[in-house]
Design a protein around this nucleic acid. Sequence first.
DNA 1: TTTCGTGTTCCATTTTAAGTTAACTTTGTC
DNA 2: GACAAAGTTAACTTAAAATGGAACACGAAA
Lengths: 99, 99
Amino acid sequence: MKKNKNLTSFDEHLDEQYGKRGTAKRTEFEIKAKAFLIGEVIKDERRLANLTQEQLADKIGAKKSFISRIENGKSDIQLSTLYRLLEFGLGRKIELLVH
Amino acid sequence: MKKNKNLTSFDEHLDEQYGKRGTAKRTEFEIKAKAFLIGEVIKDERRLANLTQEQLADKIGAKKSFISRIENGKSDIQLSTLYRLLEFGLGRKIELLVH
DNA sequence: TTTCGTGTTCCATTTTAAGTTAACTTTGTC
DNA sequence: GACAAAGTTAACTTAAAATGGAACACGAAA
């Protein structure tokens, strides 16, 4: 994968694509981007549990393609999906701290 | 609001409506029910911030009816909506612990 | 008892996650 | 390289979230 030359150029790319920071569109992008990070967590937990995407999918009655999309940050999942994957599928407990 | 006579009768009600614990339908109900609890958290945080539903709605460019539905556990919100409400709208930080 | 602020509900449309299938790519092993 | 297992992607349908708007409910205060 090609790396960005520097952060400035990446920021400029975002400015172009989604407007400057603080604009509604840019804020929305940043919120979504943050939500997509959950995929990394799920991937890590699945690997810790030594499961393939297909095995995890089977546990929750889904398909491996569904897991793949989520792990790669391509889906803004519902809260219930978060619980279904981490708690029901992987036997973890999720604690949501607000501070 | 009417209280349940006892837990047994409520469990029986769930058994009837969604099948016994462990069945796919019942599990799905329990996962959703858990996800819906977030509404309470949002309501509490909004009140702590001394905002009306309409004021919070304005902050995130939404309508008060949208906030009301979520606070009352009538929507299985996306992760981005969680961040939009608590972080962007109410200035809180969300930490998601998995254990 | 009327008005006002706040919250709830209902009905509508648009958008998107969820779910499925199948083809494709990557990766590891022989 | 051949092969199989694991993972990715695209295209599609279905269900539900997101969203808006208006009507309604309700308590408090005027």
